[in-house]
Amino acid sequence: MNFEAKINKFIEILIDYKGYVKVIEGLENTLKIAILGLVIGIVIGTLIATVRVIPKYKTLPRVLNSICTFYVGFFRGTPMVVQLLLFYYVALPLMGINLPSVSVAIAVFGLNSGAYISEIMRSGIQSVDYGQTEGGRSVGLSFATTMMKIVIPQAVKNILPTLGNEFIVLIKETSIVSFIGAADLYVAFNYIGSNSYEFMVPYLAMAIIYIVIVCIITVLIKFMERSLKKSDRRN
């Protein structure tokens, strides 16, 4: 079969055999898992990073800190596929919970990226001059308020490029969720391929879709960076 015929076959399955429904569903799941995972990850990561920079001469921060160390150690120490399988086939059945695979994927992606983002966020918080914290505390703000209103906004500005990186990694990493039976882009194009016994064009199309998504995200991040640079002299 020459290349033109392969493309025609691909288009035929995509349109006539409702392949596009699968693709749209896959795209939707991919974006859902990556975006919600990132949001959960940012929340968890910010909390962990904050715990890690609390002064540690009291018991509670110390206990929290060791919990966070364990958490980060676990999620950075095992592959995401293993975590997906562990959650879907071990942890949730043991707890007697039955969740759709996409929800499990969102949760695992959130927990996993939380571990990575916590380290990114910690470096961001530490890049903000300690004087900012002192300034906030000196006017009577609590540690938490100082973090939330003054330090973390400045930290986020500093780590935005790295955070964008993490988002891109997440988008691409979604291609492993088929391990627990969630239908993402890979599943969609694999379906088209196996129906035509012809994988060249479907996988090429899949790659192009990923590249397009990542390009869009890159532009969005650039845009956000620029609008956050307002308070900088160098803009």
């Binding site: 004087g131 900012q132 002192e134 300034g135 003054i150 906004p153 400045q154 308070s231």
Partner: peptide, 9 residues
């Protein structure tokens, strides 16, 4: 403070 510590954001 010596270094002002105004909130930069």
């Amino acid at each position: 403070f010596q270094h002002f510590n105004l909130f930069n954001n």
